[in-house]
Simulated scan of single mutants.
Amino acid sequence: MEPRLNFYKASPDAMKALGTLEQHIAKCGLEKQLVELVRLRASQINGCAYCVDLHAADALKADEAPRRLATLSVWQETPFFNDRERAALAWTEAVTLVSETHVPDAVWEQIRPHFTPEEIVDLTLLVSTINAWNRFAIAFRKLPA
Rank of each mutant, 00 (worst) to 15 (best):
residue 31 E to L: 11
residue 37 L to I: 10
residue 29 G to A: 13
residue 16 K to G: 05
residue 23 Q to A: 12
residue 17 A to E: 00
residue 21 L to N: 10
residue 14 A to I: 07
residue 27 K to L: 13
residue 34 L to F: 04
residue 35 V to I: 15
residue 37 L to S: 10
residue 16 K to H: 11
residue 40 L to D: 00
residue 12 P to V: 03
residue 38 V to I: 15
residue 25 I to K: 07
residue 12 P to T: 03
residue 32 K to H: 10
residue 16 K to I: 09
residue 34 L to H: 02
residue 21 L to R: 05
residue 26 A to V: 06
residue 12 P to R: 02
residue 40 L to G: 02
residue 19 G to M: 06
residue 22 E to H: 12
residue 34 L to E: 07
residue 37 L to R: 08
residue 19 G to I: 09
residue 33 Q to I: 12
residue 14 A to Q: 08
residue 31 E to A: 14
residue 39 R to P: 02
residue 39 R to V: 05
residue 24 H to C: 05
residue 34 L to P: 02
residue 16 K to N: 09
residue 26 A to G: 06
residue 15 M to T: 08
residue 35 V to D: 10
residue 24 H to P: 01
residue 33 Q to T: 12
residue 18 L to A: 06
residue 25 I to S: 04
residue 29 G to C: 13
residue 17 A to I: 00
residue 21 L to D: 08
residue 11 S to K: 10
residue 37 L to P: 02
residue 39 R to S: 08
residue 22 E to K: 14
residue 17 A to Q: 02
residue 19 G to S: 05
residue 16 K to S: 11
residue 25 I to P: 00
residue 38 V to H: 06
residue 37 L to A: 13
residue 29 G to Q: 06
residue 28 C to T: 10
residue 20 T to I: 11
residue 18 L to D: 01
residue 20 T to A: 15
residue 28 C to F: 04
residue 28 C to H: 04
residue 14 A to W: 02
residue 14 A to K: 07
residue 19 G to E: 04
residue 15 M to F: 07
residue 27 K to A: 15
residue 25 I to D: 03
residue 37 L to G: 07
residue 40 L to Y: 00
residue 11 S to M: 11
residue 35 V to T: 15
residue 40 L to H: 03
residue 14 A to S: 12
residue 35 V to F: 05
residue 38 V to Y: 02
residue 27 K to E: 10
residue 34 L to I: 09
residue 29 G to M: 14
residue 36 E to H: 15
residue 29 G to Y: 15
residue 28 C to L: 08
residue 27 K to V: 14
residue 37 L to N: 13
residue 15 M to R: 07
residue 21 L to C: 13
residue 32 K to P: 03
residue 22 E to R: 14
residue 26 A to W: 11
residue 32 K to E: 09
residue 11 S to I: 09
residue 15 M to G: 00
residue 23 Q to W: 09
residue 20 T to E: 11
residue 34 L to S: 06
residue 30 L to Y: 05
residue 39 R to E: 07
residue 28 C to D: 09
residue 35 V to E: 11
residue 18 L to P: 03
residue 19 G to F: 01
